[in-house]
Design a binder for these strands. Structure first.
Lengths: 188, 188
DNA sequence: CGTTTTATCGTGCAGTTGCACTATAACCCA
DNA sequence: TGGGTTATAGTGCAACTGCACGATAAAACG
């Protein structure tokens, strides 16, 4: 048989191809044949690693969440070195914004899944818990009458800004400006 | 010929059918045949009123924006009677949230188009201008060092909350709570 | 060394999609 | 009253979709 292959690795490669397509033309452009072409393999091989298209899409969602969380965690940890609550919050929020090419891809794919979730029960179950899981980690950083409301609002704001950047309502700099303006109020 | 028919009216009927489908199963479920079935007419008739599927989708986008704007304008005007800036702002923002069945449909369809906009140049051009057009109308209502940043942030927050409600991250009441919490800060 | 696995490919298939083409019944106008 | 027009319906088609079914070469293993 040909070289033995790490299946997880192959699945991840296919997933990356899927992301590239979703970034460029949206999830609606994701087909088995196109993913195969983008990954440089035969369509049959895609089916070899994912028994069904839905499973492939679903796997890619789980992966993008992992990547996004890892990305943000890294930002937060780096900021934690400073010990400055504001810097940590800013890092966490800016880490969700599509301010560079890497994060832009993550954001686009993530947003695509967000909206998928609106009409897809299963994906909604995965996506809906994310802000609820994130908020409690950040509440200790703020002093306010209602820290949870404060942090949840901040997350919702950031999510709105992220979509705003993607549809070109704001430039990344403008969005960061709005975010900083808000943080000024929180800590000023 | 059969009864002479108002073409605009027919197009709107078809558009409503499209919305219902998009609300239930997303824009990806919108096909000529399904729209026709939902509207209770033959597929050919859909093609009679829209020469192409893209045109139909695009027309429905323009319509949903019109409806959403009208909805919000109505809310705002009603609140203007009170003359209370906070009430006006709240009406404008709450008018964007899917807090009842009617607004839920508007929001879902609107969100679907937002997503579409990320990877579709033409639709992005339509969608991206919306917050920029809305913000200046509301800036006179707030007193702050940077009223525009204030209002833009508020709009982004609301947009984030709207998506959050749709994917069941928040209940409508929670979202309204976050909004009010923010307004408390602004006016308190 | 032979045979069993395993990664890969090509092809075929039934279903769906958007669209084009034709038909026809009903209404308006000359 | 009759020819032209318009709203409607049916049907066919090429393209594409996800998926299933072999075929094959190469590595692993007895």
């Amino acid at each position: 048989m040909p070289k033995r292959v790490d299946h997880e690795q192959r699945r991840r490669e296919i997933t990356h191809a899927l992301w590239r397509i979703a970034t460029e033309d949206g999830l609606k452009a994701v087909t088995l044949r196109r993913v195969a072409a983008e990954a440089g393999i035969s369509m049959n091989l895609v089916q070899y690693y994912f028994s069904t298209k839905d499973q492939m899409v679903r796997y890619s969602l789980d992966e993008i969440i992992k990547v996004a969380v890892a990305q943000m965690t890294k930002e937060i940890d780096a900021a934690k070195e400073t010990g400055d609550p504001r810097a940590i919050l800013r890092a966490a929020m800016a880490g969700m914004l599509p301010v560079d090419e890497g994060r832009r891809q993550t954001s686009i794919v993530y947003c695509a899944y967000m909206l998928y979730a609106v009409t897809d029960e299963e994906i909604r179950a995965v996506v809906s818990g994310i802000p609820r899981a994130l908020a409690p980690q950040l509440t200790p950083l703020v002093q306010a009458p209602d820290p949870l409301a404060e942090v949840e609002s901040l997350i919702a704001l950031t999510s709105g800004l992220a979509v705003g950047i993607l549809v070109a309502s704001y430039t990344p700099d403008e969005a960061l400006g709005f975010l900083d303006y808000r943080l000024d109020q929180l800590f000023g």
